[in-house]
């Protein structure tokens, strides 16, 4: 069983050992971390957290658009760690998660994966 160390910066850098086969929501809640969640299938964004170090597999998530993923958001109810990770958790981490679409529209490549237009080259991001 592969175990990883998860550090929660906004919980006094507390660390937890978690199983790479279980979702982060499941593992952290089992160890007493109080986390928001809703649907438990990766669709509702309630459990989003921000990753600042490490990597996860969250291919099952359908809630995040590409901008939110680029900003480091992870859907804990379906994400499994693939390395040691550092997170900011809870609503405190949601400063970049929500956006007024009339004030700050998404670019075509920033939409959700199923409707996004892929970037042709890196210079396009500057447009």
């Amino acid at each position: 069983m592969t175990m990883y160390t998860i550090t929660l910066v906004n919980r006094g850098d507390a660390t937890y050992q978690v199983d790479g086969k279980k979702t982060l929501l499941e593992s952290l809640r089992a160890q007493g971390v109080d986390l928001p969640y809703g649907c438990k299938y990766g669709g509702c964004i309630t459990c989003a957290a921000k990753i600042t170090k490490g990597s996860v597999n969250q291919t099952a998530q359908v809630a995040l658009n590409n901008r939110q993923i680029n900003d480091g958001y992870v859907i804990l109810c379906v994400a499994r760690p693939t390395s040691d990770c550092t997170f900011e958790i809870g609503v405190e981490s949601h400063d970049q998660l929500y956006r007024n679409p009339f004030l700050d529209p998404l670019k075509p490549h920033e939409l959700k994966a199923d409707v996004a237009t892929p970037l042709k080259d890196s210079s396009e991001e500057l447009l």
Partner: peptide, 18 residues
């Protein structure tokens, strides 16, 4: 779909018939 509206409103998805 719940997977569309629950995470928030992306105006751009209206044009994609979501």
């Amino acid at each position: 779909a719940p997977n569309t509206f629950m995470p928030g409103f992306d105006l751009e998805e209206v044009g994609h018939l979501k």
